[in-house]
Design a protein around this nucleic acid. Sequence first.
DNA 1: TATTTTTTAGGAATCAATCCTAAAAGAAGG
DNA 2: CCTTCTTTTAGGATTGATTCCTAAAAAATA
Lengths: 128, 128
Amino acid sequence: MTRQRQLIYNIIAAAPEHRTAEEIYDLARAEMPTLARGTVYRNLGLLVRDGEIRKLEMADAPARYDREKRPHPHLVCQVCGRVEDLPAPEGLLEPFAAARGVTLTGYDLKLYHVCPACRGFRNDTRQE
Amino acid sequence: MTRQRQLIYNIIAAAPEHRTAEEIYDLARAEMPTLARGTVYRNLGLLVRDGEIRKLEMADAPARYDREKRPHPHLVCQVCGRVEDLPAPEGLLEPFAAARGVTLTGYDLKLYHVCPACRGFRNDTRQE
DNA sequence: TATTTTTTAGGAATCAATCCTAAAAGAAGG
DNA sequence: CCTTCTTTTAGGATTGATTCCTAAAAAATA
């Protein structure tokens, strides 16, 4: 385990934010100024491959990384792109797939909405 | 409506395939050899904006385009990347979102599996 | 048909991500 | 700690998808 990889992992593990490679690069450079961009991408790839973190492919935007290893859906603001984790939809997708004779190996579920900040309301109805 | 745009739309509308911009470009060039790549991208964007077609963002691969305008999930082969349409999961996602106080504006659901061809079986259990 | 507006072709530019290579750092053993 | 072997890094070049730019062409409008 190199210092570079540990640093990159720590940045992701330390916060629930779903950051882009570039954001992670910037944060990491603050602590290790010689860190190369390619090193960040390569280590992110390795961490994903080893199941330490998850990669989130975003529509028309750079990928983001999630410290949560278990599969779960995401709530994405259509306007600002902000991403939140959602609890896994227990027993929702499996039956849907099974009913079609499909053996699920994974899923990607994004729910789009407009977040309170982008809606301009402060009296939104979301809990959390 | 320009000839270029009509041609691009026709290619998508004519088949259930989920093609990439590059594939559409190649098919279109067969009929209109001077067509520019940028014209394909621009028109795909406009068609998506106007709700004539849908854009499918793929993981680590170029986007694909879908003639089906209604929202619906996709079944994606992890190995070859092949994409199939799935019927809309009526009343599955809305309650899930509503239960969390979220007003859904859209969704993106991809189910991953390994298609029969990639599994190497011919006795698979999928219908259709 | 003349005028105004939009779109195109073609190529340059951008942006995220990957690849390349010599140098540096880590792992393993004693 | 030394030495050796293997992996990883920095830094920059490269790629691949997509977007942008501009003068010319086509479409819409009158």
